[in-house]
Computed example of a mutant assay.
Amino acid sequence: MSEAHGGYYVPHQSHWPIVGSIGLFVLMAGFASLLNGASFGPTLMMAGGLITVLMMVGWFGTVIRENQQGMYHAREDMSFRWGMGWFIFSEVMFFAAFFGALFYARVLSVPWLGGAEPEQWTHQLLWQGFEAGWPTNGPAGVGGEFQPMAAWGIPALNTLILLSSGVTVTWAHWGIKEGNRRKQIGGLAATVALGFLFMAFQVYEYGEAYSHLNLTLQSGIYGSTFFMLTGFHGMHVTVGAIMLLVMLGRAIAGHFTEDNHFAFEAAAWYWHFVDVVWLGLFVFVYWL
């Protein structure tokens, strides 16, 4: 039904949901096989990943075409906004769990193992001689000696990069609202470049951690929480940069207008979320 009749556009039957389900199932089966030492695990993971990417390209492409054909109006727009809002909320909860794990380890678990009340008996019976402190690789010195990652090198530079990218994506948004294609394309191009620059520095940082600091996933609780938080954040930066790259392509194609550009807004919301998470990481993982 059309908007004039108070209707809501219901898309035709689509094969993309089942394709996505198959892709995710194959991806997870491959990952489980890899963890259990199966030789076909990486191949299965790659196949599942390719199927999932095919689904995303096809499904998102269908949505873009429907939008360009004028099938979406105010009610569909509101659904998209609610959907993206709840998705970002789920991502907030995702990172909240990992920050909670870091909090538990630093504020509760490590002090208890070092003899703090009310678990002083744990120290006396199991880990005599262990001195609580952060960063630590645990009472048994798991993974051997390591050096923590300094905050005021690449992490501080990456903080500046992400904060700058928040400015450039906002600048691009202003360009869309003003009908200034040069500003929107320039702002998006700068944001995408900064996003991939951030990832390049993080890859270099990981290389330094493994090669010179002996800081690995096996470096006790500090190593596991460090790579868990920074790794998942890096994955989200990569996803956000790809989203903005698609938005750049659409901006170049002239898809966005002053009144119809929620796809860009959704990507910008996600990017600002990534920025905020990084600030938490910089403070609690690198700095304090």
Rank of each mutant, 00 (worst) to 15 (best):
G61H: 03
S109K: 12
A156G: 03
F130C: 12
A267C: 15
D275H: 11
I18H: 03
V57A: 00
S224N: 07
L162A: 04
S109C: 10
E91K: 14
T216K: 10
F282D: 02
R181C: 10
G41A: 01
S164Y: 01
P148C: 11
A200M: 11
H261V: 05
L50S: 13
T136D: 03
Q218I: 04
G70E: 05
G223H: 02
F262D: 05
Q13L: 11
A150E: 13
F232G: 09
A105C: 06
L162N: 01
G195E: 00
L162E: 02
A156R: 11
D259I: 13
L229Y: 09
G141F: 10
M93H: 05
R182S: 12
Q184F: 07
M243L: 15
F196L: 07
A4P: 02
H173Q: 13
R250K: 11
L244P: 00
A200P: 08
S33W: 04
S211L: 11
I64D: 03
M45L: 10
E205I: 12
V285L: 05
E66K: 12
F262E: 02
F264R: 14
V277M: 04
P17I: 01
A190T: 00
Y72M: 12
F25V: 15
D77I: 14
V167T: 01
A105K: 00
M1W: 07
T230Y: 02
N158Q: 09
F146L: 01
I252K: 07
R75S: 14
V26D: 00
F273K: 08
V246Q: 00
Q124I: 04
I88R: 05
M71T: 08
L160T: 09
L213S: 06
L102N: 03
Q124K: 15
V274L: 06
V274F: 05
G6P: 03
I242H: 02
G61R: 01
W152Y: 11
K183T: 15
F198P: 03
G37R: 04
L217Q: 05
S219R: 06
H212L: 10
D259P: 02
A151D: 01
Q218M: 09
G100Y: 07
F201Y: 11
T257S: 14
D275E: 12
E178D: 12
W121T: 14
F196C: 00
G133L: 09
S90F: 09
E119I: 15
Y104I: 14
F262Q: 12
V277L: 03
Y8Q: 08
T52S: 13
A97P: 01
F99N: 08
W152P: 06
Y8I: 14
A47Y: 08
G186Q: 04
Q147N: 07
S165Q: 02
S211N: 13
L288P: 10
A96E: 06
G195S: 11
W59P: 09
